[in-house]
């Protein structure tokens, strides 16, 4: 087993969007984060505080203004787009807030797509069946993306992110469209995966319940890390209460 070295190390990360010629909207302002391999981390914060932006930077979909992002020992901010693409498909599983599924393909093809891109579809079938079972989407694998519900789309997106055993899973509100039961199933599955493959999960959520499955909760506000809550040795219930309390203090939910 590997030592729980830092898998993700972010230092002084900043990002702003240009609004008008000279004007720029600062979204992230000097973020510092360290995530250990195999950790489950949740990022919480009010809408528009830059959570999706952070995800995009880590996955290399968008580029940062300044700061560094190290995944394992690789600095990704200096990679070119092709290197990033190859890196992404072999190390990162991505779940988008708005799914980004291909309408032209059915559920199964969508899920298997990362394997096709990597040119090894051999070991896919077994994994595919397993994931489908856990996410209970076995019945809809032949359906078109346009014909499935929002929750089903979400589960398809999760399945796609998991299919090629990524070392780090970046999930933007993976349970946003799910009912309590499905949320619980998905979170339990993600915890299982985490345990089984030492996959690191970094997820954005508004749901304190989902967050309570994690080892660590990072609170973002106004583009800065407000605080970090650690689960440590507490049980999930106690951690959940911690989160609630903290959110109440800062005037959230």
């Amino acid at each position: 087993m590997e030592s729980p070295a830092d898998i993700l190390k972010i230092t002084n990360l900043s990002k702003s969007y240009p609004i008008h010629k000279e004007l720029a909207l600062p979204v992230l302002q000097g973020i510092d984060l360290t995530i250990k391999a195999g950790e489950l981390t949740a990022v919480m914060g009010p809408s528009g505080c830059g959570k999706t932006t952070l995800m995009n930077l880590i996955s290399g979909v968008d580029s940062a203004d300044s700061g560094s992002i190290m995944i394992r020992d690789t600095e990704i901010t200096t990679m070119n787009k092709s290197q990033m693409a190859v890196f992404r498909r072999s190390h990162i599983g991505l779940i988008f807030q708005d799914f980004n599924l291909m309408e032209s393909l059915n559920v199964k093809d969508n899920i298997l797509l990362p394997l096709f891109l990597d040119n090894h579809s051999q070991y896919g079938e077994e994994m595919f069946q397993k994931i489908c079972k856990i996410l209970s989407i076995c019945d809809i694998t032949d359906k078109n993306i346009t014909d499935i519900s929002g929750g089903e789309k979400q589960r398809t997106a999760i399945a796609r992110a998991l299919i090629n055993h990524p070392q780090i899973i970046l999930a933007d509100e993976p349970t946003g469209n799910l009912d309590a039961k499905s949320t619980k199933d998905v979170m339990e599955y993600l915890t299982d995966i985490n345990r089984e493959f030492q996959a690191t999960l970094f997820m954005v959520t508004h749901d304190s319940y989902a967050a309570s499955y994690c080892d660590k909760v990072i609170l973002l506000k106004d583009g800065k890390v407000l605080s970090v809550l650690e689960k440590a040795q507490n049980s999930r219930k106690i951690f959940l209460e911690h989160i609630y309390e903290f959110l109440k203090q800062i005037g959230g939910e």
Binding site: A85, N100, M102, S104, L117
Partner: peptide, 14 residues
Amino acid sequence: QEYSVLMTLGMTER
């Protein structure tokens, strides 16, 4: 749109 989704999944520009 489709190309860009494929690129997020790791398809290279080439």
